[in-house]
Each structure stands twice: as structure tokens, then as C-alpha cells.
Design a protein around this nucleic acid. Sequence first.
DNA 1: CGGAAGATTGATCATGATCAATGACAGTGG
DNA 2: CCACTGTCATTGATCATGATCAATCTTCCG
Lengths: 254, 254
Amino acid sequence: MQDALIRKLESFEELIDADREALRALVSRVRKVPARSDLIREGDVPSDVHLILSGYACRYKILPDGQRQIMAYFVPGDFCDLNVFILDQMDHNIGTISPCHAVEIPRQAIEEIMANHPRVTRALMWCALVDEAVLREWLVNLGSRPSDQRIAHLFCELYLRLEAVGHVNDNSYLFPFTQNEVADTMGLSDEHVNRTLRELRRLELITLKHRVLTIMDVEQLKAYCGFNPNYLHLRNARWSGRRQVPWLNSVQGE
Amino acid sequence: MQDALIRKLESFEELIDADREALRALVSRVRKVPARSDLIREGDVPSDVHLILSGYACRYKILPDGQRQIMAYFVPGDFCDLNVFILDQMDHNIGTISPCHAVEIPRQAIEEIMANHPRVTRALMWCALVDEAVLREWLVNLGSRPSDQRIAHLFCELYLRLEAVGHVNDNSYLFPFTQNEVADTMGLSDEHVNRTLRELRRLELITLKHRVLTIMDVEQLKAYCGFNPNYLHLRNARWSGRRQVPWLNSVQGE
DNA sequence: CGGAAGATTGATCATGATCAATGACAGTGG
DNA sequence: CCACTGTCATTGATCATGATCAATCTTCCG
């Protein structure tokens, strides 16, 4: 269970046994957290870092009108707030989606590991930067893609992220999000998410039942939404898709 | 001109003269960059960090279909890629909006300052975290706000960020973005941006001509879009607006 | 003055939101 | 074991925000 993190870090950086030991030592106070509860809330003063060992969580905000926006998904091996704890107070919430095993790692433990394990430090910084790159890609998703590609893109991303920690089997992974949660992630209405999922099923791109998502043909789904994995900065996967000449004034046409 | 950075950092952390000296020393190789040109491109291997001294720049991606999504604005005193340079290759572009003075700071110079100036280091980390918080808020903006509030929110944010570096006078600041650029930022069409701006003008919330934006009444504009400045983590401004009880299933009503 | 980029306006279209039921299903208590 | 309840998914009908298409109009600049 606790190897998700190590596995992820190793997809960024070679580690030695001592590194792995140190990482395993971080995982002491494991907390079992029920589904749909907050790990930390807006306004709280952060002290510890949260690491997800099992289950899914998310980062979200609630607007004054009650509207929720989910800004990140966390899967096993993910830190929820590796650096945020430097700030004065949380400007958002972190809550579980499914029941989770989570660890609260004191800031000091992180600093210690950073002082003594340069490879781990590099890998952790890499993680933080990838998280930010993911956030940027989500912005692109909301700003530039129609609803079907938007959702397909999310599925592709989760596929690669979960694969990196060994949580994909037979092109399938656990997808415990309700349609309402997907809607609040993608800036869509519940009903529209429902219809869009139906459409993706009809096109035989995916299957989704009993909280298990199966991607019938990964390459096809990637092509469907123009998925470019470069933002995940995995050591393996590089892109093979079309490339566009950059510069201003959105060149029309395909 | 080069004091924007120092001024910004001081809004996060007290600095001493030696800190200020060290920061000023960073600004050697100043480059004059024309409007609408790239500082760095997707695929490039990053080495230096870019700091904007004057002018405006942005972070953007071009999708395979030519669609551009702008993901961040940079104003004087902003680093474009304080940490990104750790990554293997750029997954996005950084380009100027108006003519800019920019500095390319070698990674080593940053590392040196971090080794010797703890207050500056803290302030820089703070900057990086605020940049990320801004990115999150932009996601909320695209995901959850209608077009008029979305644009109003952008105006409020820029107002506070520019004020922090002394670039606001008489409730006005330079706004050199074309409507096309605003559109590609907000995930809207050019025409709709145009109509939305007209509406904001009609409501006498703003004035925008000759590339100068004037906010008639800042508090009113904030109220209009439900602006909560907490995500900017400025030492002064704290929020006075309504607060919502967190937890799932978007509580309806006002 | 001429040309190009950007802004503006109008007409029409369509994606996705909203409103309103209904269905499926899991968990709970009798 | 089964009715009861609440949550989540599904479907249909209608609405509206914002996109698209097509002209101008303005402004800026060489």
C-alpha cells in the first residue's frame, strides 16, 4: 500500500535503498479517513503535509453562492499539500472522495529528508512541479475543450497517473467519483456529465460501472481528446501527436 | 523600475538592506523584448529564470487545433518560471504581451541567493506558492463563474497585484491586452468579451480606453464578482465577505 | 493616405444549463 | 425478508449563455 509513493518517485528519479527506507519511515501515523470528509479546511493554519496511501481525495473551494469547484484529484502516492504548508492559512479545502488511508507528515520530517536525501528531494520537487503542470492542464481543459473531450482528457490523465503507481489493471481503474463530483470538477452540470458519459460509452471509448472505469482503447481515447502526456513529465511516455507552430492569433483550421 | 520585485517580496516578508542588495545584483543582463514575442517555448530545455522588470507577459499553450489558452499573466516583479526550470523540458510557452524589460537569471544565481538569504528564500517560496494559488483561482474562475464575473474577477486580481508593486494610480492601471487575448485567457470568444466589457462599462463598474483600465469603485467591483483576496496571501488585505459552511453537495440558496 | 489589426455590432446557432420527473440501488430498521 | 429512505443516475423538455458568422467601423502607424 505505502509503496505507491516510492513507485511514483522512482518514475522520476533513481533511488537507493536508503532513500526508500527514509520514505517508508515517513509513514508512521496512518489515519483512516471515511469518505466525504475534510482533511483540512479553508482558513486552517497548515502544519502537516498530507500523503494519500489509499483511496481518492480532492482539493476544492466553495464559492459564496454555494458552488463547488474541485481543483485537483489525489490518488495513492500523492501529496495533497507538499508546499502549501508554508502559507499563513489554507485558501481551499482538501477532502476525501472515497475512504482513505492518509498520513500526516510533520513539516520537520520533510525538511529532514530534504536535508539528507538529495535524490528524494529532487523527486519531491519534481512531484510538486508536475502537480502544478497538471493544474495548468486542467485550466486548458476548462478553457479550451468541449465537454466530451474534457471528460475524456480527465480519464486519460488518471489512467497515466494511476498506471505510474500500479493501480491500473486490464485498462481499468477505480473511479469512485459521483457524476456530481465530476460535474463540479469540469465546470459542467450533473445532467450534462451524465449525457456526455453516455455518449463516450456509445462511442465504445469507455465503460463505467460499479465505480470501475475501463478504457476500451487508450490510444483511441487519447486521440479523441488530443491528449498530450508531456505535462505529466513521466520518464517513459513522450508524445507522438501533431505539433503546431507556436505563435499568436489562433491559427484556424485543423 | 527594478524595485517592483523588492516591493513585492517586502509585502510578504521583512527584508534587510543586504537582502535588497543581493536582489538588485540579480538584475544584470537586462533584455529588451518587443511585444508579442516568446521568451521561451514548449519543448525548450529551461536553464534560466525569467524575471519581468517592466511590461506584461503571459504563459500559454497552443492546442493541436490551434486554440490558444493563456494560463497566467506576468506583471513587473513577477518571475515567469521560478521553479519550472527544474523540469526536463518546457510544457508551455512564455511570451510578451507588451514590450518588456526582462532579466534572465541563471539557476545558479538563484541557488546562491537561497543559500545566503533566508528571508529572501522564504519570500521567493511564498511567491511561488501565491502563483500557484492564483492558478487555482483561475481554474475556479473558468469552472464556476459566468463571463461577466469572470472578467471582473480578473480585473480585481490585477488591481491588487499591480497595486502591490506600485503600478496603480487613481484606481487605474495599464491594460495592454487585446480583447482576443482576454478571450483566450477566459475561455470565451472575442465577440463575447467585447459585449461583456460593454456591459461592465454600462454598469459603470469600469472604464477601459487607450489601454488604461479604471475601476470606478473597487469595492463595488469586488462585490460584483464575489472577489475574495485571501488567495493572494497579501499581508494587508483580508476578506470581509460572506463565508459559507463547507461541505459537500453545494448548499443551495444565497 | 492606405492598410492592417483590433473593436464593435447584429443575426443566428448550438452547447450546455435548468427544471422536472422517474428509475436504480444500497443501506437501515422492523 | 421486506418496506422505507436517501443518494445517485437517467431521461425528456425547454431555456439561455455564449459561440459562430458576417459585416462594418476605428485606430494606429508606416
